[in-house]
Write a protein that binds this DNA or RNA. Structure first.
Length: 658
RNA sequence: GGGGGAGUGGCGAAAUGGCAGACGCGCAUGCCUUAGGAGCAUGUGCCUUAACAGGCGUGUGGGUUCGAAUCCCACCUUCCCCA
């Protein structure tokens, strides 16, 4: 059990960071306590299936790694010579290397350590085990550190070849992972290789590299190869050997094919006040009894005192603690542990969708209407905690009949981290209070600025100065939208205005769908400038001008909702701008009759030419060659190649004519 | 150590095989102003040049291509994640 001495509570593996409590940074120690778990491992395989999720690959990879499914073989090494009737269970994904086992290593916490340690080694082993108990798992498994181990003095038998190999204790083996014991194959595992060299153990090649001449290896050979020194399996490819050896082990009863997971069951007990009480009652006669459904939910008592000993007030609150056994009615005690807060965040979206469910925790009909969540926005830091728990909850609730879908969040986007003073902005450690910014510039300005900082999924650096640009732009919008269009009677700029409108909408909508709000806003800024220019030139009609301003406001609405609404009303509209549809764009109106081609000579830009938009390749190249600065660079040269990229550029490749 | 991002002006950034630096900040000059931490206009990658123009330039070194910030290889720096 991971125990934080400061917070006086247990922690899930996911909540231990670098051996320290995720909340307060205190070094976490190991404690043995009875706890409540959720059986998330029962869903491990289903949780691995993320094919239909539109999530960032990175998050999917992190979840896969966290679940950590590996297929391999469990095999027992007999130790009855030293501990009658016992054997050491080991798990390996490389059963093809089993003939190369030259030692077996136990985790310091392994129950057989005590039984197997021989008298002459006892003092040294006990010291070693005590030392390992003071170190964190991160320290023990760090690859930076040299592997250490100590002999127990005992030996075990490899069932495949009947060999007697030494049993050691090593702190790089964790009791909590796999079987808490590993077989040592120095020739084919780099950690074992280094370990064997250090302690003078045999390094025996059993999977030969191609063209192996029988000499000693310089480092472990990890890839596949040919079985050698492997009895009846010699000559097989190690890929086939894996299956053949596993078959033999299973048919001989020495072990079996096994799937293991890194994921462990979710420890949900917390020794805190602030949490959902675990609905369990302890009765001296009936044992552990769940609170009957009609008595749910168990509510926290309200008038409690918090003492500085860090213990949950629930452990001292008699009115909460004492109750009657639901089965026999005799006096009984409530569980005083509460549920991890990740339990609540695993289904809050279901409750949001059905806020008044009556007797049930949620209303399935309303949940079906609204969910699953189409687009979820959250931080990448939730990859293996909240997001995994939430998926598990959804699947469990589905199996209980509460929801009819498999996944809670169809599409996931990670917003990036905001950095201030070289540290990430966080509500706990480095907060950015929006109030003064809102006070000074308004909520719309702050909102737009956050969108303008950079790509949404990359976050950005907060700076106080850049916000002025957004403030100025919104000021220009305010000005331009309210100009009096009655003096406009022109027509020369109509076509240009229409083009600008449709191009802008195309850019704004495309970028918004890709969560590139920064470039969406840049497009609207350019459009604002264009509107101002057209008004000052007075070369459009009043109607076109007004339509163009409406278009600006409609696209501004999602970004600066208050300002857009106010201007929508001030420009003569009734009803809310937020009930309007976004404008559409006509691709045919985004093009123009003439285009500017860039002209390169040998890939270097030399000039530009204005040509008809539908110009043919030959004509485009001919026009390009006439450009003054191009002619200069190709004069007297032999033309090797001419390239025309329609609508974009011409590249003329030349070399000296000599 | 392993896994995954990122590296472009003074700064935030744009461009994902086709005119590098859009848009914005900052800065400079000018206009307006009794005033400016307001507003407006113009300019602003570096070097050479009176100008036309030319050279250099997207972390470093190589490669592919008519053409590379963009693709490939190696390296450097940095951020995030890690049983």
């Amino acid at each position: 059990m991971n125990w934080c001495p400061k917070d006086q509570t247990t922690l899930a593996n996911e909540q231990v960071k670098d051996g320290a409590c995720e909340r307060c940074g205190t070094t976490v120690v190991k404690r043995a306590l009875p706890q409540w778990y959720f059986a998330i491992t029962k869903y491990a395989d289903e949780l691995l299936n993320m094919d239909r999720l539109e999530w960032p690959e990175k998050i999917k990879t992190m979840q896969r790694n966290w679940i950590g499914r590996s297929t391999g073989t469990t095999i027992g090494f007999d130790v009855s010579e030293f501990a009658p009737g016992e054997q050491i269970e080991t798990f390996t994904t490389r059963i093809d290397t089993v003939y190369g086992v030259t030692f077996v290593v136990l985790a310091p916490e392994h129950p057989l350590v005590e039984k197997l340690t021989q008298p002459e080694q006892r003092t040294a082993v006990e010291e070693y085990v005590a030392k390992a108990g003071r170190e964190t798992e991160i320290e023990r498994t760090s690859t930076e550190r040299e592997k250490t181990g100590i002999e127990t003095g005992a030996y075990c038998i490899n069932p495949l070849n009947g060999e007697r190999v030494p049993v050691l204790v090593g702190d790089y083996v964790l009791a909590s992972y796999g079987t808490g014991a590993v077989m040592g194959v120095p020739a084919h595992d780099q950690r074992d290789f280094i370990f064997a060299r250090k302690y003078g153990l045999e390094i025996r090649v059993v999977v030969a590299p191609p063209n192996w001449d029988g000499s000693d290896l310089e480092e472990a050979w990890i890839p596949a190869g040919t079985q050698v020194n492997s009895g009846e399996f010699d000559g097989m490819s190690s890929t086939d050997g894996k299956d053949a050896i596993a078959d033999k082990i299973e048919s001989s009863g020495w072990g079996e094919r096994t799937i293991t997971y890194h994921l462990r069951d979710w420890l949900v007990s917390r020794q805190r006040y602030w949490g959902t009480p675990i609905p369990i009652i302890y009765c001296d006669d009936c044992g552990t009894v769940p609170v009957p459904e009609q008595d749910l939910p168990v509510l926290l008592p309200e008038n409690v005192t918090f003492d500085p000993d860090g213990k949950s007030p629930l452990t001292r609150d008699a009115s909460f603690l004492n109750t009657a056994c639901p089965d026999c009615g005799k006096a009984a005690r409530r569980e005083t542990d509460t549920l991890d807060t990740f339990v609540c965040s695993s289904w809050y979206h279901l409750r949001f969708a059905s806020p008044n469910p009556g007797e049930d925790p949620l209303n399935s009909e309303q949940v079906k209407t609204w969910l699953p969540v189409n687009q979820y926005m959250g931080g990448a830091e939730h990859a293996v905690m909240h997001l995994l728990y939430s998926r598990f909850f959804n699947k469990a609730l589905r199996d209980l009949g509460f929801v009819d879908f498999d996944e809670p969040y169809a599409r996931l986007i990670n917003q990036g981290m905001l950095i201030k003073d070289h540290r990430k902005i966080s509500k706990r450690s480095n907060p950015l209070t929006p109030d003064p910014v809102v006070e000074k510039h308004g909520a719309d300005t702050l909102r737009c600025y956050l969108m303008f900082l950079g790509p949404w999924d990359q976050g950005g650096d907060w700076s106080d100065s850049g916000i002025n640009g957004i403030r100025r732009w919104l000021g220009r919008v305010w000005d331009v939208a309210q100009r009096d269009e009655s003096r406009l009677h022109g027509s020369d700029g109509e076509r240009a205005l229409e083009r600008a409108s449709h191009i802008t909408t195309q850019r704004v909508l495309t970028d918004m769908e890709a969560f590139k709000f920064n470039t969406s806003i840049a497009a609207l800024m350019e459009y604002t400038t264009e509107l101002t220019r057209r008004f000052d030139a007075a070369d459009v009609s009043a109607t076109s001008w007004r339509d163009a301003v409406d278009r600006l406001l409609l696209q501004l609405a999602p970004m600066a909702p208050h300002l857009a609404e106010e201007l929508w009303h001030r420009t003569g509209h009734t009803g809310s701008v937020h009930l309007e549809m976004l404008p559409e764009f006509d691709e045919s109106l985004t093009t123009s009759e003439s285009i500017t081609l860039a002209v390169q000579v040998n890939g270097k830009l030399r000039d530009q030419v204005d040509v008809d938009a539908d110009i043919e390749q030959d004509a485009a190249i001919a026009a390009a060659k006439l450009a003054e600065n191009v002619a200069r660079h190709i004069e007297g040269m032999a033309i090797v190649k001419e390239i025309y990229v329609p609508g974009r550029l011409v590249n003329i490749v030349v070399r000296s004519a000599s």
